[in-house]
Lab assay of single mutants.
Amino acid sequence: MEVRTIKVFTTVDNINLHTQVVDMSMTYGQQFGPTYLDGADVTKIKPHNSHEGKTFYVLPNDDTLRVEAFEYYHTTDPSFLGRYMSALNHTKKWKYPQVNGLTSIKWADNNCYLATALLTLQQIELKFNPPALQDAYYRARAGEAANFCALILAYCNKTVGELGDVRETMSYLFQHANLDSCKRVLNVVCKTCGQQQTTLKGVEAVMYMGTLSYEQFKKGVQIPCTCGKQATKYLVQQESPFVMMSAPPAQYELKHGTFTCASEYTGNYQCGHYKHITSKETLYCIDGALLTKSSEYKGPITDVFYKENSYTTTIK
């Protein structure tokens, strides 16, 4: 009895394709271990004539594949690729409408935090270190965002349907971005203890939790000093293409032309909904596939993004 075979390709990165001759009487799992086709788990399936010449994702289970996976995804987590594939199996079914010149995501599976993050990423200057993220990001900007969303979920250790947080998501993504040249110098002034300067680099240099107003941050924000008295913390120097200011959701007025974009969060910790506000020729609110415009805006804002380049204080 002759062994019926077909020729397929296996890959971990969709760049390096490895030619395989597979036995049609055995499952993919018996031949390769966990195997995925377009995100779908085909591990328990036997090869079919229609699979001839198709590319299958496999887990990096030998040295060659491990090197290829690390170079593309910059992670050695053995569960990463499987999590990416199972997320992709959902995100490829989502709709990605162009809204006001940006790629958004039609609401499904509690994905409003991903839509808000995706919209924000198209408006701030950011370059990702893992080629996987950078490639998928370019495709997302062009309207094909399924891979990018699935990668975000995998890097953030999230599953489809789980509630997510924009600030946490951005923080994970910033860790995989090139923020080497970003720098922030802060000064804390206390009447009792004097003053202390701190220099922050990388992710810490672009994120701040405690106030939404970048102007206020430049002037000074009140913080408790270690001595128990009130101290003032203010920005001395900022070198970065953008800054992200966050605070627990509270009524906040966004003035046209003073910011790049913002995240609105309605609801409580267990259950809520994100919308995205962007400042173009007027203010726009993007909620999944829905767009509304207004000249002014007041609502429960939790993150505001500002364009920056270089700032030095005039406070002496």
Rank of each mutant, 00 (worst) to 15 (best):
E253W: 08
A87F: 05
Y208M: 09
K307V: 12
Q222F: 10
F305S: 03
G143E: 04
F242C: 02
E253K: 13
L291E: 15
A247M: 06
S181W: 07
A247R: 02
A231G: 05
Q216R: 09
Y208F: 09
D38A: 11
K7A: 12
Y234I: 10
D180R: 09
L163P: 11
K233M: 15
L102R: 01
A289F: 06
K201T: 15
N111Q: 02
A145P: 10
K7N: 10
A142S: 13
A150G: 05
C149P: 02
Q134K: 13
T103S: 05
L151T: 02
G194R: 02
K158W: 06
I277N: 00
C285G: 05
T5F: 11
R167I: 02
D109Q: 11
K158E: 00
N89Q: 08
R139K: 12
T226R: 15
C227N: 02
A289M: 12
Y269V: 14
T199M: 12
H18A: 07
F242R: 01
I45W: 09
V12R: 08
L290A: 15
D287Q: 01
M207R: 07
Q270K: 09
S171E: 08
V185F: 02
P34V: 07
A140N: 02
G82M: 13
E253N: 11
V206Q: 02
Q122Y: 01
E204F: 06
C271D: 07
N14G: 11
A140E: 00
A177F: 02
T266N: 09
L212W: 00
Q270V: 10
S86G: 11
V236S: 06
K44R: 12
L212K: 01
T211F: 07
E144T: 07
E215V: 06
I277E: 05
M245W: 02
G299E: 03
G288I: 00
D38G: 09
P241I: 01
T75I: 10
Q195E: 13
E296V: 12
K106A: 15
N110Q: 01
C193I: 05
S50Q: 15
G143H: 04
E144N: 13
Y28H: 05
H74E: 07
Q195T: 14
Y57R: 05
S294N: 10
T91M: 01
Q238L: 01
R83F: 05
A108N: 06
V188N: 05
A87C: 09
L133C: 05
F128C: 05
D62G: 08
E308Y: 00
M207G: 05
A145G: 13
K158C: 02
V221D: 02
Q31C: 11
P97V: 15
E71S: 09
G39S: 14
K106V: 15
E215L: 06
T159Y: 12
E68Q: 08
N129Q: 12
R139L: 11
K219G: 08
Y28K: 05
H48V: 12
T116I: 03
